[in-house]
Simulated assay, not measured.
Amino acid sequence: MTLYDLKPAFQTLLRPLLRSLHRAGITANQVTLLALLASLALGLLLTLHPAPALFLLLPGFLLVRMALNAIDGMLAREFNQQSKLGAVLNEAGDVLSDAALYLPFALLPGADPIAVVVMVLLANLTEFVGVIAQTVGAARRYDGPLGKSDRAFALGAYALLVGLYAPALAWSPWLFWALAALCALTCLNRARRALQEAA
């Protein structure tokens, strides 16, 4: 069970906005690029100014990014906008956005930069393993325990905490090592279930 399992309900909430965007001529690829560029911009801001108070921007942005990620997929599927370019933009955009938004945690006071970098690398590996499942004849894997939505929730909550409660900065090393371990477990689960499905 991961937050990804709540995606159908989330999509239902977004459907009125989806229809408005389609009528306005907005395409799935444009939404994907908007999410990526906004993520890179916020990541750059947090890198240049790694003040705990600025990390209060992250929880709300991560929610908006999740909405944009849902909308681009819905536009592609429901309005015949699926393309090979869109698939590449979607997967590459997620990896780049995660790196841009999560690496700045390494610059906060009390952080263990190695733990943050290892977590981000393993988070990206979870998406790679999820995609590579398709090369062995399985479906794209979204298994947990720490998929993209779960990471966003955990790190959004931590960003909110460090912005409001300075002592939480000291929790960073063990938190990121724990998240790294959960990402590694997620990779194993996705690989194992992809092989089981392919068999």
Results as ranks from 00 to 15, higher is better:
residue 1 M to T: 14
residue 2 T to Q: 07
residue 3 L to I: 10
residue 5 D to F: 08
residue 7 K to W: 11
residue 8 P to C: 08
residue 9 A to H: 15
residue 10 F to A: 15
residue 14 L to N: 07
residue 15 R to S: 14
residue 15 R to I: 08
residue 16 P to Y: 07
residue 17 L to K: 07
residue 17 L to R: 08
residue 19 R to C: 09
residue 19 R to N: 11
residue 20 S to P: 00
residue 20 S to C: 14
residue 20 S to Y: 08
residue 24 A to K: 12
residue 29 N to S: 11
residue 30 Q to C: 07
residue 31 V to C: 02
residue 33 L to I: 07
residue 34 L to S: 08
residue 35 A to W: 03
residue 36 L to E: 02
residue 39 S to H: 00
residue 43 G to I: 00
residue 44 L to M: 11
residue 51 A to R: 14
residue 52 P to Q: 06
residue 52 P to W: 05
residue 53 A to D: 10
residue 53 A to H: 11
residue 53 A to E: 13
residue 54 L to T: 01
residue 55 F to T: 00
residue 56 L to Q: 02
residue 57 L to H: 06
residue 59 P to S: 08
residue 59 P to T: 06
residue 60 G to E: 07
residue 61 F to E: 02
residue 62 L to E: 01
residue 62 L to P: 01
residue 63 L to A: 15
residue 63 L to T: 14
residue 64 V to E: 05
residue 65 R to C: 02
residue 65 R to H: 11
residue 66 M to E: 14
residue 69 N to E: 08
residue 70 A to H: 11
residue 71 I to K: 00
residue 71 I to R: 01
residue 72 D to Q: 03
residue 75 L to H: 04
residue 76 A to N: 07
residue 76 A to K: 03
residue 77 R to P: 08
residue 78 E to W: 10
residue 80 N to L: 13
residue 84 K to S: 13
residue 85 L to R: 14
residue 87 A to E: 15
residue 88 V to F: 15
residue 88 V to K: 13
residue 89 L to R: 06
residue 89 L to S: 06
residue 90 N to Q: 12
residue 90 N to C: 10
residue 92 A to M: 14
residue 93 G to V: 01
residue 94 D to H: 06
residue 95 V to I: 15
residue 98 D to C: 05
residue 102 Y to C: 07
residue 103 L to M: 13
residue 103 L to D: 06
residue 104 P to T: 05
residue 104 P to D: 06
residue 108 L to N: 03
residue 112 D to C: 10
residue 113 P to F: 09
residue 116 V to I: 12
residue 120 V to N: 04
residue 123 A to I: 10
residue 124 N to I: 10
residue 127 E to T: 09
residue 127 E to R: 09
residue 129 V to M: 11
residue 130 G to Q: 06
residue 133 A to N: 07
residue 136 V to I: 15
residue 137 G to D: 08
residue 138 A to N: 04
residue 140 R to M: 06
residue 141 R to Y: 02
residue 141 R to D: 04
residue 141 R to V: 03
residue 145 P to S: 06
residue 146 L to I: 05
residue 146 L to T: 02
residue 147 G to T: 00
residue 149 S to N: 04
residue 151 R to K: 10
residue 152 A to D: 02
residue 154 A to I: 03
residue 155 L to G: 00
residue 157 A to P: 03
residue 159 A to H: 01
residue 159 A to N: 01
residue 159 A to V: 01
residue 160 L to W: 05
residue 161 L to H: 00
residue 163 G to P: 01
residue 164 L to F: 10
residue 167 P to F: 01
residue 169 L to G: 02
residue 170 A to D: 12
residue 172 S to Q: 11
residue 175 L to S: 03
residue 176 F to C: 02
residue 177 W to E: 03
residue 178 A to G: 15
residue 178 A to D: 05
residue 180 A to E: 00
residue 181 A to M: 09
residue 183 C to N: 12
residue 184 A to G: 14
residue 186 T to N: 04
residue 188 L to G: 13
residue 189 N to D: 11
residue 189 N to F: 09
residue 190 R to Q: 07
residue 191 A to Y: 13
residue 194 A to T: 04
residue 195 L to W: 14
residue 199 A to P: 05
